[in-house]
């Protein structure tokens, strides 16, 4: 998931200065999990902006409807075409990926070119939950964790070292940069030992291939059969008695 946090409200209000009619769009994916752009947060933001004298159209996306996936998000956004046409600005409560996907829907599908501002800062690909999340992957395009006990040193180590820990690992095995965090290489060392692969730590790891992060990366894939997949989701939901 994309870890994220809310931008300070002052920064959000500054960006909307002089704009009267605002469409606030959320995200039913990561932004809902991180409480930055779920339906509740979209409604809260609408309330704040209304108190500031603005006319607000809240567009919350239900859970599991990702703003960054056009087939999902466009279904919801399209319904508000009229409000979006009339608004002065869009406030997007998602990561930059969701924001830019919505921007494309507005520009290219709805023909509504509007200023769009972020209410969120994205903090990296982070897994975990329900409460604690740690950034685990930086989508480098050349995964190395097979050599490192399933722990990514490029992401978990602040220096991204590939051949073992720096000289700053603390006596308690914590990182020199943050005494609250475990040294990634201390974790890797212990886990390699536990899974019987400690000999791997002696292998030299070549300089990383960063050419695979040449941005932007563009891919084409066979479109998903949404109906088929949503059918499976429906089965899960029903099995949960919801």
């Amino acid at each position: 998931m994309m870890g994220q946090e809310k931008k300070p409200i002052e920064e959000v209000l500054d960006s909307l200065d002089g704009k009267k009619k605002i469409a606030v769009i959320g995200c039913g994916g990561c932004s809902t999990v991180f409480h930055t752009g779920g339906i509740e947060e979209v409604n809260e933001m609408a309330e704040i902006l209304t108190k500031q004298g603005k006319k607000v159209t809240p567009i919350g996306l239900p859970f599991a409807v990702f703003a960054c996936y056009k087939p999902f998000s466009s279904m919801f956004v399209e319904k508000f075409k009229k409000d979006l046409k009339e608004c002065d600005a869009v406030l997007m409560m998602s990561c930059g990926d969701g924001l830019q996907t919505i921007r494309e829907i507005l520009d290219e599908e709805l023909g509504v070119e509007k200023p769009i501002y972020p209410a969120t800062n994205a903090l990296g690909v982070s897994g975990g939950g329900p409460a604690k999340f740690i950034e685990k992957c930086q989508a480098c395009g050349d995964c190395v964790v097979g050599k490192t006990a399933g722990i990514c040193p490029l992401t978990e180590c602040p220096k991204g070292l590939l051949n073992g820990p720096c000289g700053g690992t603390r006596q308690d095995g914590k990182c020199e940069v943050d005494p609250e965090k475990d040294c990634a290489w201390n974790l890797i060392y212990n886990r390699l030992k536990n899974i019987g692969e400690l000999d791997k730590i002696n292998n030299f790891v070549e300089s990383h291939d960063w050419s695979k992060v040449t941005r932007p990366r563009v891919f084409e894939r066979e479109p998903l059969d949404i109906h088929k997949h949503l059918g499976r989701t429906k089965e899960v939901i029903e099995s949960l008695g919801i």
Binding site: G164, P165, G167, T169, Q171, G173, Y189, N190
Partner: peptide, 16 residues
């Protein structure tokens, strides 16, 4: 650095 953790890895690291 012979003093940083994990101590057991500090010689193998030197060897590398």
């Amino acid at each position: 650095n012979p003093f940083a953790e994990p101590f057991e890895f500090r010689v193998p690291r030197l060897a590398k």
